[in-house]
């Protein structure tokens, strides 16, 4: 028996999002029942200067910080430019589009359907999660990072 293949979609905005806009769109999306996984993509913002003459100096940055999504505090470590979603069913795509339209009033965005998340482990995934890992974890968090994914309370 083959594993079920869930539909996925990618939301890309014209500009990188502020944490407040990210919080707004994620809260709208989190209200929609039938979303299995959410990945936030964008350039990394380190806590300390990673290299150069100022290496090790703290790096205050307004795009990094905590946001509250569905009552859960999420530590935002990237400047969000792409949101990947895995859905249980394609039927909720119009709801996701209307959520985006209500939040991205000053920005254009694109929404694409396809396969965007990893389905097989990379060598690093294998080293971190082992041979019998939950496939839900692949690609959902940077495997080199020590933190794990955030889990939102389901609303089904």
């Amino acid at each position: 028996m083959t594993d079920a293949v869930y539909p996925q979609c990618k939301i890309e905005t014209e500009r990188y999002l502020n944490p407040s806009t990210t919080e707004q769109i994620l809260n709208k999306i989190a209200e929609i029942p039938g979303i299995r996984r959410i990945i936030l993509n964008g350039p990394n913002i380190p806590q300390v200067v990673p290299y150069g003459p100022a290496r090790g100096v703290p790096n205050p940055h307004s795009a990094r910080g905590a946001i509250i999504v569905g009552g859960e505090e999420i530590d935002l470590r990237v400047q969000v430019g792409t949101i990947l979603l895995e859905l249980e069913d394609k039927d909720i795509l119009p709801e996701i589009r209307s959520a985006c339209e209500s939040v991205f009033t000053t920005l254009t965005f694109s929404m694409k359907e396809g396969r965007f998340m990893r389905s097989t482990p990379t060598q690093t995934d294998y080293a971190k999660y082992g041979p019998n890992a939950d496939a839900m974890l692949y690609g959902i968090v940077d495997p080199k990072n020590k933190t794990g994914p955030s889990i939102l309370q389901g609303n089904k």
């Binding site: 905005t13 014209e14 500009r15 990188y16 999002l17 502020n18 806009t21 350039p43 200067v49 990673p50 290299y51 150069g52 003459p53 100022a54 795009a63 400047q79 430019g81 000053t106 920005l107």
Partner: peptide
């Protein structure tokens, strides 16, 4: 140093 950004989208 740490120059990444010239080819990226702009922020909001």
């Amino acid at each position: 140093a740490t120059v990444h950004g010239h080819s990226l989208r702009l922020a909001e």
